[in-house]
Design a protein around this nucleic acid. Structure first.
Length: 170
DNA sequence: GCCAACGTTGGC
DNA sequence: GCCAACGTTGGC
């Protein structure tokens, strides 16, 4: 029995690895390395599956925004950058026989017609529970509920047509 | 630049 | 096991 497609969000700072960096990567694909948080690791290792769809979010960027959609193209496997002392996210306590850190491969599917900013997401009906919008939410890999995904895709279609969202402030 | 929130470390 | 200290994240 196949598992239903699930939905996720990953964060990256545009300065370190941007949506455009992914879009211009070979095969528009990269390994999502460097995650060094156990909760996110567990999801990368155990939950993200080939075929799942992922929102690509720029954090600590101007603006903070969801840039587009990518797809998991390889299930979790050991993050080999943890084994290499020359790597920024080298972890001497992770060894190849018993890897601590995992990653998946993601492929860019399509950019949003235009980015959906964090401030646009706030206050959108149906996104009240979205992990990204919770105070203090720092997870760099987050589950996205199916309903939230649908709301965001609808939002994107509205924005593509030039409509505005949210309250009119005057 | 500031600072709140969170995760990790390490002394006890 | 507790918890203070510290480092990091990330919005503003």
């Amino acid at each position: 029995m196949t598992r239903p497609r699930q939905y996720w969000l990953v964060k990256s700072e545009a300065d370190s690895f941007s949506w455009n960096d992914l879009w211009t990567s070979p095969a528009r694909t990269t390994h999502w390395d460097g995650v060094r948080n156990y909760q996110a690791r567990n999801m990368l290792r155990d939950e993200l599956r080939k075929g799942d769809l992922v929102l690509f979010y720029h954090s600590s960027s101007e603006p903070n925004a969801i840039m587009g959609i990518c797809e998991v193209v390889r299930d979790g496997y050991p993050d080999f950058t943890a084994f290499d002392p020359r790597e920024e996210h080298f972890d001497p306590r992770s060894d190849a026989d018993q890897p601590t850190w995992y990653m998946v491969d993601v492929k860019a599917v399509r950019p949003f017609a235009r980015p959906i900013t964090l401030s646009e997401l706030r206050g959108v009906p149906g996104l009240e529970q979205m992990t990204l919008l919770q105070k203090g939410s720092r997870l760099s890999v987050q589950p996205v509920r199916k309903g939230e995904w649908a709301v965001i895709e609808k939002l994107e279609r509205q924005l593509a047509k030039g409509q505005t969202v949210g309250k009119v402030v005057r």
